[in-house]
Design a binder for these strands. Structure first.
Lengths: 256, 256
DNA sequence: CCCATCAACTGGTCGGACCAGTGGACTAGG
DNA sequence: CCTAGTCCACTGGTCCGACCAGTTGATGGG
C-alpha cells in the first residue's frame, strides 16, 4: 500500500515539553533504573536548582507533581531533603475513585462491578485460604452479629471488615483496591438512603445469614457456590436502589 | 466499652495542609459537585491568584498537580484559560504501571484481574448483545484471522479490537476502562517476550480458535460457558510467563 | 554527662519581572 | 459587503530575590 510505505516518515503532533516535566522524567528514570530507591533522599530544592540549572519555581513544580504521584514527600525544615517513598497504592486509589465518580457511571454499573469483584475475591479465597484465615473470617461474622444490636453504622463497619478480610485472602492487591474504592463510592451514593430504610434490622439479619452461608461454602472449598451466594447477597442488598430497567445486567451475573 | 465512649474525642494526627493543596481540593470538589464540568474553562492563573488570594507560584503548583492527574490542561497563550478535561484512563494506567514495575503488583495478579474482568464482560455481553453487536464481534474475528498472516502486532491489535467490542457490549464503562488499563499494563510488561516466542503462529491459531468458541457461546446465550472459555484462553495465553507457584490462583478462576 | 540555646539550614509562600506565544479585534484591501 | 492581514492585550512558562516558620544538629553552659 502507498500509505503503508509512508508510515516511516509519518509525523507526530508535537506539544511543548515543559522544563518541570523533564525534571520529573529524569527523576522517574533514575528511580526506574534503580539509581534512586525508596528511603533515599533527594538533594534540597536549592541544590536541585543548580543541578538542573533551572529556577526554584520549576524545581518545585516538578516536586509537587512527584509528590502528588506518591513518589516523594517533602517536609519543611528537613535537612536531608525530600524523601523517596516506597510505592503505595494510594495514588492508584485516587485515580480509581476519580474514575468511579465520573457522572456517566450508573449505580447499576458500580454494583455490577462490586458483584464481579467480590465474587471473584471469594472464589479465590475459598481456594487459597488457610485455616487461620478462615477463623478470621468467622470472627468478623461474630462481630457482625454483635453489631446488629448496636447500630447500623456499626454493622456496616463489621461488614466492611468481612469483605476486607476476604480480599486479603485473595492475595490480589488489585482486587483489594478495586473493591475498596468501589465500595466507598457506592456507600457515598446511597448510605443516606440505607440509613433511612424502615426494616433495617430485618435487612441486617438477612445479610448476616447470607454471609454465614458464604463462609460455609468457603470452608467447604466450593468457590463457585460461595461466589454465587455473595453476588446474590449484593443483589438483594442493593437492587431496590437501582432503577428497574438497569437490573437486568445484575441478574445476568447471578444466573449461571 | 470504655474506649468506645472516648471515640468522640479521639485526636487525629495533624500534618500541615499546604495552600496549593487546598486549591486542588476546592477545584476537585467543584468538579465532584458538578459546578465544573469537562470542556469548561478555569479562570486564568492571574485571575485565580486574586480569587484564591495566594501568589501565582501557589496557583501554578496546584495547576501542575491537577494537570499531572489528568484533570486540566494548560496551553500557553490560550485566552480562555486552562481546560477541564474529560476523564482519561491515562493517569490510571501510569499508576498501575508504576506499581507493576516494582513488583508491588505481580504479573499473576494482573492476569487474574484480566481473567475476572474479561470473563465478566463476556458473561454480560452474552446476555445483553444485540444481533448487530454480535455481527460486529464476528467481524473482528475475521480481522484476527487475516492478521495472522501479517504480523504478530497486527494480530495483537485485532485481538484488542475484539475485547474492546465485547467490553462495549457489556455496557459498563467501569469494566471497559479497567480492562483497557490492565491489558495495556500487561502488554507493556511482556510484549517483548511474546514477540520472541518461537511458535507464535501456532499460538495465534489457537487463540483465534478460542475466540471463535467464545463468540459461539455468546451467540447461544450461554454466558457461563463463554466466560469459562475466555478465562481458559487467557490462562493458556499467559500462563507460561507466570512463575509456576503463582499459577494456582489463576487455575482457581477456571475450575467451576 | 545532660540539657537549653542558637544558628544554619529546610521547605512554603510571596511579589515582581521578562519572554514567546495565542487569539480576537481591528483595519485595509478586495 | 466580505476577506485577509496586522496588531496588541493577554496567556502561560520561567526566572529572580526575598521573607517566614519550622527542624536539626552543633554549641556551650549547667
Amino acid at each position: 500500500m502507498a500509505s503503508g510505505s509512508q508510515r516511516g516518515l509519518q509525523f507526530e503532533p508535537v506539544q511543548p515539553v515543559r522544563a518541570y516535566q523533564r525534571i520529573v522524567e529524569q527523576i522517574e528514570e533514575a528511580l526506574a533504573r534503580g539509581d534512586l530507591a525508596p528511603g533515599q533522599r533527594l538533594p534540597s530544592e536549592r541544590d536541585l536548582v543548580s543541578q538542573f540549572a533551572v529556577s526554584r519555581s520549576t524545581v518545585r513544580e516538578a516536586l509537587r507533581v512527584l509528590e502528588s504521584n506518591g513518589v516523594v514527600r517533602s517536609r519543611p525544615g528537613d535537612p536531608n531533603g525530600p524523601e523517596i517513598l516506597p510505592f503505595s497504592p494510594g495514588p492508584l486509589r485516587k485515580q480509581m475513585t476519580r474514575l468511579a465518580r465520573v457522572d456517566e457511571l450508573t449505580l447499576s454499573e458500580l454494583i455490577a462491578f462490586r458483584m464481579i469483584m467480590d465474587g471473584a475475591a471469594i472464589q479465590l479465597a475459598s481456594r487459597l485460604r488457610t485455616p487461620e484465615q478462615l477463623a478470621e473470617m468467622e470472627q468478623t461474622l461474630v462481630e457482625m452479629r454483635a453489631a446488629i444490636d448496636v447500630d447500623f453504622t456499626a454493622f456496616s463497619e463489621a461488614d466492611v471488615a468481612f469483605h476486607e478480610a476476604v480480599a486479603r485472602v485473595s492475595r490480589n492487591s488489585l482486587i483489594q483496591t478495586c473493591n475498596e474504592v468501589v465500595r466507598g463510592v457506592v456507600l457515598g451514593l446511597i448510605s443516606d438512603k440505607i440509613a433511612h430504610a424502615a426494616n433495617s434490622r430485618a435487612l441486617m439479619l438477612e445479610s448476616l445469614q447470607h454471609h454465614a452461608e458464604v463462609v460455609e461454602a468457603i470452608r467447604a472449598g466450593d468457590g463457585h457456590a460461595a461466589a454465587r451466594i455473595a453476588r446474590q447477597n449484593l443483589y438483594d442488598y442493593y437492587a431496590s436502589y437501582v432503577p428497574a430497567p438497569d437490573r437486568d445486567p445484575l441478574r445476568a451475573l447471578i444466573e449461571d
